[in-house]
């Protein structure tokens, strides 16, 4: 009986530990921290946009859902409500400029004044994909100022 109770206790403890692990690290696992994540790909803004617009992503590479570090010369900075977007425009379409739109993390809004359209900058962010006109990078951080 004593042995049975011991095994039961061990099983209960294991179940509790397992349940706690699943609760904190699976069900409630935190979102990936893009700001501290290492980039999956490093490339120039122009080549990044070209891959999408020409559907010419190198074999074995998939930028959707990946962390990208891009370098290039931004053409404008937009403010849309609480959003700050750094734009690398490469072409023009029916709906205006087309290129890469990088939405900054709120914590990086304070560094925005260091980005000047026409001067090189390096950003890192999560690629959400291509919507037919623009490639979207979100949760972007400024790597160099």
């Amino acid at each position: 009986m004593k042995k049975f109770k011991l095994w039961l206790l061990i099983l209960l403890a294991a179940g509790l530990l397992g349940g706690t692990y699943v609760w904190f690290f699976v069900y409630n696992k935190p979102h990936r921290n893009i700001e501290t994540a290492s980039p999956d790909y490093i490339l120039t803004a122009e080549s990044f946009y070209t891959h999408y617009s020409n559907k010419s992503t190198p074999e074995g590479e998939n930028y959707d859902g990946a962390v990208l570090q891009i370098s290039g010369i931004p053409t404008s900075i937009e403010t849309v409500d609480s959003l700050r977007i750094v734009v690398f425009a490469f072409t023009e379409g029916v709906f205006g400029d087309e290129g890469i739109r990088c939405t900054l993390l709120p914590s990086h809004h304070q560094y925005l004044k260091s980005i000047v359209p026409g001067r090189p900058v390096t950003l890192k962010g999560l690629c959400s994909g291509y919507n037919g006109t623009d490639v979207i990078l979100e949760q972007c951080s400024i790597i160099n100022e």
Binding site: Y27, N28, K29, H31, D64, S128
Partner: peptide
């Protein structure tokens, strides 16, 4: 992919 949920899972 731009939809953001409170829970990552």
């Amino acid at each position: 992919k731009s939809f953001v949920f409170e829970k990552a899972l």
